[in-house]
Write a protein that binds this DNA or RNA. Structure first.
Length: 276
DNA sequence: GGCTTATCCTGGGCGC
DNA sequence: TGCGCCCAGGATAAGC
């Protein structure tokens, strides 16, 4: 499932090959995938625009288009953006097709149909169309300091795992990298966020940055549905310490990796290394 | 305001 | 073989 490293990998992959290209035609195969405006308007408004830049905020991909219009994409759990030749056969889960002027097309595939696309009018902004963008927390790769984290956790009695998944605190972390960061910092996922010491928070901030940077360098994780914009799998899953390793031996202490449900999400951890 | 829970959605895995 | 159930999880609304 795409988290910050996977979204960033897609962004970097598309940036080199998509900027400068023009959208000629839009085909919507699943109306649910279009969040704004209506699917009919979406297909009518995008053609003629060219891509001028691609940025990222949390797990949102933000495409800046010509004439100051925009296109936003959230991959959610199983979304993929694939840049392919037009004559290549369609995948089973193709939802939206953006046909380009260079015999290629940008395809949005999404098995679970949770992912969404937004068109942003020239006189509007990404934040106006997607109000959630205004509520997103700090970007973990832009200088995540222990002091910042401490103030964010100060009044939070919820578990640290729950806090890390809260996009209003840190933007971009999901289940995989929250579990991996907590393992690296040796913190139990059920510890209330406001009970962490400054030393623990410092360790956690370091681990978050380390885990995310390493995952980006390895092209993300491909534990289930994710590939990059060329359909290539990431490699981080081979390096995961706890995620997806329930019942296996901890790489540090050798004890069995456990899992439990926290706020509806499976959390995987080592009960020995993450005792406190 | 903080926090948890239910909901959306679909394919894969498993048991019978 | 076929059926039914459970699980995975990001964002959001609803409820406490």
């Amino acid at each position: 499932m795409p988290e910050l490293p996977e979204v960033e990998t897609v962004r970097r992959g598309l940036l080199t090959s998509l900027v400068g290209e023009t959208i000629e035609r839009v085909e919507i195969l699943r109306r649910d995938s279009i969040a704004f405006p209506s699917p009919k308007e979406f297909a009518k408004l995008l053609p003629g625009h060219s891509f001028s830049n691609i940025s990222r905020r949390g797990k949102y991909l933000l495409f800046e288009l010509s004439n100051e219009a925009g296109l936003a994409v959230h991959l959610r759990m199983s979304g993929r953006l694939l840049l392919t030749d037009q004559d290549k056969g369609d995948g089973k889960f193709l939802r939206v097709r953006l046909v380009l002027n260079n015999r290629q097309e940008l395809r949005f595939e999404d098995m679970r149909v949770f992912g969404r696309l937004w068109y942003v009018h020239p006189r509007s902004s990404f934040e106006e169309v997607i109000p959630t963008l205004k509520t997103l927390g700090v970007e973990p790769l832009e200088g995540l300091s222990a002091q910042t984290l401490r103030s964010l956790f100060k009044n939070r009695s919820q578990s640290i795992k729950s806090a890390l998944l809260n996009q209003q605190i840190i933007a971009g972390l999901g289940n995989i990298y929250a579990d991996e960061s907590l393992f690296g910092a040796r913190i139990h996922p059920l510890r209330p966020a406001n009970t962490l010491t400054l030393a623990e928070i410092r360790g956690l901030a370091t681990e978050i940055e380390k885990v995310l940077s390493k995952a980006i360098a390895l092209g993300g994780s491909s534990l289930r549905d994710y590939t990059d914009s060329r359909g290539v799998n990431g490699n981080y899953q081979n390096d995961a310490s706890v995620y997806g390793r329930h019942g296996q031996s901890c790489r540090v202490c050798g004890n069995s990796i456990k899992s439990l449900r926290i706020v509806g999400r499976r959390s995987t951890f080592c009960p020995i290394c993450q005792e406190g």
